[in-house]
């Protein structure tokens, strides 16, 4: 998903304006001229300048209308699905792991990911199982990272 220079400039300018508007209510430190709003406003100002600069350059180069070039992969339905799948797997881990526990969630996430990429089923099962137990042992046991517990697999703890 590639935007043209003119679009990028417009987006940057809009971003700057949005940051400025969002910072209006950040008040200064009592008794001072500066505070929470200083930094966002400075960022907004320079971002806006960069946006104007890019727009000027694009217009001078002959661009007239903002546009969007779709990368080649967006034309392949399965590629788009695979991209959505990997994002979905991360969301699934965030939602499921605190409830079900680390081991089963990690195993399933890796298994599904490997199957999507076309790994053969036995290999995928073995690698996912070994990796999830290895991570659980090294992070959970050795490094004391409190990975979510799973009540029905807690003999690993």
């Amino acid at each position: 998903m590639r935007v043209t220079d003119l679009t990028l400039g417009l987006l940057t300018l809009l971003g700057g304006i949005a940051i400025y508007l969002s910072a209006i209510n950040f008040h200064a430190i009592p008794g001072q001229d500066y505070g929470a709003g200083t930094m966002p406003r400075a960022i907004a100002f320079v971002t806006g300048l960069v946006g104007v600069f890019i727009i000027t350059k694009a217009v001078m180069a002959g661009e007239r209308l903002p546009g969007l070039q779709l990368a080649e992969w967006t034309r392949s339905g399965s590629a788009v699905l695979r991209m959505l799948a990997v994002l979905g797997l991360i969301v699934a881990y965030i939602v499921v792991s605190p409830v079900v526990g680390f081991l089963p969630t990690a195993f399933c996430v890796m298994l599904v990911a490997m199957l999507i990429l076309g790994v053969r089923i036995p290999t995928a099962i073995i690698v996912s199982a070994v990796t999830s137990v290895a991570i659980q042992q090294s992070f959970g046991k050795l490094l004391l990272v409190p990975l979510p517990r799973s009540d029905f697999l807690n003999f690993f703890w």
Binding site: P146, D151, F152, N154, F155, W157
Partner: peptide, 20 residues
């Protein structure tokens, strides 16, 4: 079997697992 053992452990006295 292990699951049965661990669920039996629930009845045990505090504390029976790591404290955070």
């Amino acid at each position: 079997g292990l699951m049965a053992m661990t669920s039996a452990a629930w009845a045990q006295e505090y504390p029976e697992r790591p404290i955070q």
